[in-house]
Amino acid sequence: MRISKGGLLVIMAFLTPLIVELRTVLSWFGIRLSVVETGALGLALIGAVLIWALWPSNGGTEAKLA
């Protein structure tokens, strides 16, 4: 893992306001997402973060921080 489990949990939590507010921001640019579309986008973001966090960095050296 690139990050501690605690750190990952906090990043996932931090994604919540980003996803919720992203819908409002996109609407200013004329992109209107439904709740389902917002949810799907959120899941995609969470998936991307999970892949980043779980992917071994530097040939498998795991971060031992925190």
Partner: peptide, 26 residues
């Protein structure tokens, strides 16, 4: 002090597993 480095990477070195720290930071 806990070994964090970089402009933002130091954030990873904070004790996120500690509910006292994480709750107060959030």
């Amino acid at each position: 002090q806990r070994g964090g480095k970089g402009y933002l990477s130091w954030l990873k070195a904070l004790p996120w597993r500690d509910p006292a720290f994480t709750g107060m930071a959030l």
